[in-house]
């Protein structure tokens, strides 16, 4: 297990390095001069522009900029506008503070949203899937299956405003969405995030319901499940002790693949409900051409996805003793 974690962490580091390089060169290759934006169009003279470019650190060749960026992560950097202690992910000139500080401010929102969303859609999706598989062929099964088929195509930017209008403004069933740190009271945190969670997880719930149902039905046809029945095990034991465990494997596989979509979905949800998370930060950074900030958000998103994939792979070993981690 330890070897596995070590090996995967090394792999993750390599992946992050690659992502950082690609995003860095992509961003700085776009024909947009942040310095020009920083001092306003037509206001700066060439000399002033050069000074701004120097202050932003974008007057050097891109490979050198990338090198300084990488060194900064471990050693910290000094900018004319302020210092950026290690690990430095760059300095945002918009708000005159290190990128990392802003990201860490916003991270709890996104993490709360994404983690809560995963819990909600796993509980609901697996639960509905089990109900449908247990009662296969009945009206319950058909209702669950067809509903999940419809909801599989309910996009957040459609569902969000609709739910907001119906459940909050018109009927006041749920409280106004917002982010309140969990440290200041779990009740407010929960109430504020409930609707975003539900909206974010709707599509996923629908998809995991279908996935879980199909995986369970497939598992119920397995030879070893037949053996369990032949031993005289009751239907409940056969279903939960034998079939359910195997059905988790395809679910975990898809979960690993879906992590990107989940982070993306969380960002859209933040935008929809005006939550102060990394998604809003990313969108704001784009509109403001705040490249250091965007770069930092990208790296953080990548880091979350990579870490989650390691967790998912470790889950395989928990579910299936045939998988040995090394």
């Amino acid at each position: 297990m330890l070897r596995f974690l070590l090996r995967r962490s090394l792999g993750a580091l390599a992946i992050l390095l690659l992502i950082s390089a690609v995003t860095f060169f992509l961003f700085y290759a776009i024909p947009r001069n942040p310095a020009l934006l920083a001092c306003g169009k037509g206001v700066c003279t060439q000399e002033q522009l050069a000074v701004v470019e120097h202050n932003l650190g974008i007057d050097k060749p891109i490979p050198q900029q990338y090198w300084e960026y990488m060194v900064g992560i471990f050693a910290g950097r000094e900018f004319p506008a302020g210092s950026c202690p290690a690990p430095c992910l760059g300095f945002s000139f918009r708000d005159n503070r290190p990128v990392l500080d802003t990201i860490l401010d916003r991270l709890p929102t996104t993490l709360s949203l994404a983690a809560g969303g995963v819990v909600v859609f796993l509980v609901l999706g697996l639960g509905f899937g089990m109900v449908a598989a247990w009662r296969r062929g009945t009206l319950t099964d058909r209702t669950v299956s067809s509903t999940s088929l419809v909801l599989s195509s309910a996009q957040i930017y459609f569902l969000g405003p609709l739910a907001l209008a119906l459940l909050v403004y018109n009927n006041q069933i749920l409280s106004q969405p917002g982010y309140f740190p969990i440290t200041e009271g779990p009740g407010a945190w929960f109430a504020g995030l409930l609707l975003p969670w539900l909206v974010l997880s709707t599509i996923f719930t629908a998809q995991y319901t279908r996935l879980s149902r199909a995986a369970l039905i497939e598992q119920l046809q397995e030879d070893h499940v037949r053996t369990a029945r032949a031993k005289g095990m009751g239907r409940r034991t056969v279903f939960f002790r034998y079939a359910w465990r195997g059905s988790l494997i395809p679910i975990v596989t898809v979960l690993g693949i879906d992590m990107g979509s989940l982070i993306g979905g969380a960002m859209i949800t933040e935008q929809t409900f005006a939550l102060p998370g990394l998604g809003r930060l990313a969108v704001d950074s784009v509109t403001q051409s705040n490249l250091p900030m965007l770069m930092g958000v990208m790296l953080f998103a990548a880091l979350m996805i990579v870490v989650f994939n390691i967790i998912v792979d470790a889950c395989y070993a928990l579910i299936d003793p045939r998988v040995r981690l090394a």
């Binding site: 397995e222 030879d223 029945r229 031993k231 005289g232 034998y242 465990r245 195997g246 299936d320």
Partner: peptide, 22 residues
């Protein structure tokens, strides 16, 4: 269910797939 595995038992062809891997 009371009879299976108790009074009547069965052995299947492929022991690899017929035993639970979990």
């Amino acid at each position: 269910e009371q009879l299976r595995g108790n009074k009547i038992a069965i052995i299947f062809q492929d022991p690899l797939t017929s035993l639970s891997p979990y």
